[in-house]
C-alpha cells in the first residue's frame, strides 16, 4: 500500500515540485545518533570478547577494559532508549516513520516493487524508479537486518548486563529469563557477538546502497537523511 501510494505521490510531486519533506527531525536525529552508538557498540563489543594486548604497569593505575565496557554499556543505553523513542515516533510521526517497523506483506504491488528493486540491483533494469520513502527492498532489509536484530541485541545485551547488575535489578527482572532460554550465559554471549557481525554486514550494505543510490537513482538519499527533504533529479 505504502509504496504504491508512494510512487503515485512521487510521480505527482515529481511533475509539479522538485522536492518533498519525508523524514521528520526526530527520525533524522535518531538515525545519526543510532549510527554513532552502533559504531561504538561494535568496536567496544569486539574488544570485550578479544581484549587488546595487556597494558603495562600496576592494576590500580589502569582501567582499560573497565572503560571499554563502560563505553559499551553507555552506548547500549543510548541505543536502547533511542530505539524506544523511535518506536514512539513510529506511532505519532508521518507514515514514512512506520516503514521500518511494518512490512505491507499482504500487498502484491509492494512485492512486485521488491522484485523490481532486486532486478535493479542485479543490473537487469536500466532505469530506477522514484520513491518518496524507503524503496521496498531497503524497507525489507531494514526490517529484518536492522529492526528485528536491534531488538534482539537489546534483549540479549540487557540479559548480559543483568549478570553484572545482579539479581533483583531491573534488567534481571525484565531480561534475566533470556540466559537460561539461550542455554546459559556463554551461549548468550556467543549469539550477541554473532549479532554484532550480522549488524555490521547490514551497515556495510546499507552505506554502500545509500551512496550508490545517491549517485545512480533519480532522487536524493544522503542529504534527505540530513535535511529531511527528498529532491527529485528529473
Amino acid at each position: 500500500m505504502l509504496s504504491q501510494q508512494d510512487m503515485l505521490e512521487a510521480e505527482r510531486h515529481g511533475r509539479q515540485v522538485r522536492s518533498i519533506y519525508v523524514y521528520e527531525a526526530p527520525v533524522r536525529l535518531w538515525h545519526w545518533i543510532n549510527a554513532a552508538a552502533m559504531v561504538v557498540l561494535a568496536v567496544t563489543g569486539y574488544f570485550i570478547g578479544l581484549p587488546p594486548p595487556s597494558v603495562p604497569g600496576e592494576a590500580v593505575d589502569n582501567f582499560l577494559l573497565g572503560y571499554i565496557r563502560f563505553a559499551h554499556f553507555a552506548a547500549g543505553y543510548v541505543f536502547a532508549i533511542g530505539l524506544l523513542a523511535r518506536v514512539y515516533w513510529a506511532c505519532v510521526g508521518n507514515h514514512h516513520a512506520r516503514q521500518i517497523f511494518m512490512l505491507p506483506v499482504t500487498n502484491r504491488a509492494w512485492w512486485s516493487e521488491v522484485l523490481f528493486e532486486l532486478r535493479w540491483y542485479l543490473f537487469l533494469e536500466k532505469h530506477p524508479k522514484k520513491y518518496v520513502g524507503h524503496n521496498p527492498m531497503a524497507q525489507l532489509m531494514m526490517f529484518f537486518f536492522f529492526t528485528l536484530l536491534a531488538f534482539g541485541m537489546v534483549i540479549t545485551g540487557f540479559a548480559l548486563y543483568s549478570e553484572g547488575a545482579g539479581q533483583g535489578s531491573w534488567s534481571d527482572t525484565l531480561f534475566g529469563w533470556v540466559l537460561p532460554l539461550l542455554g546459559g550465559s556463554m551461549q548468550t554471549h556467543s549469539w550477541h557477538r554473532l549479532g554484532m557481525w550480522i549488524m555490521m554486514s547490514f551497515v556495510l550494505v546499507h552505506v554502500y546502497a545509500a551512496i550508490r543510490e545517491d549517485i545512480m537513482s533519480r532522487q536524493s538519499l544522503i542529504s534527505t537523511m540530513v535535511s529531511g527533504w527528498r529532491m527529485f533529479k528529473d
Binding site: 578479544l50 556467543s190 549469539w191 557477538r193 554473532l194 557481525w197 555490521m200 550494505v205 550508490r212
Partner: peptide
C-alpha cells in the same frame, strides 16, 4: 561467532566491491 560472523562480513564486503565495480 567470529568465524561465522567474520565470514558473513567478508563475503558481504567482497560482494559490495564486486557490485560497485559492475555498477
Amino acid at each position: 561467532a567470529d568465524k561465522v560472523g567474520g565470514t558473513v562480513a567478508a563475503v558481504t564486503g567482497a560482494a559490495i566491491a564486486a557490485h560497485a565495480a559492475v555498477t
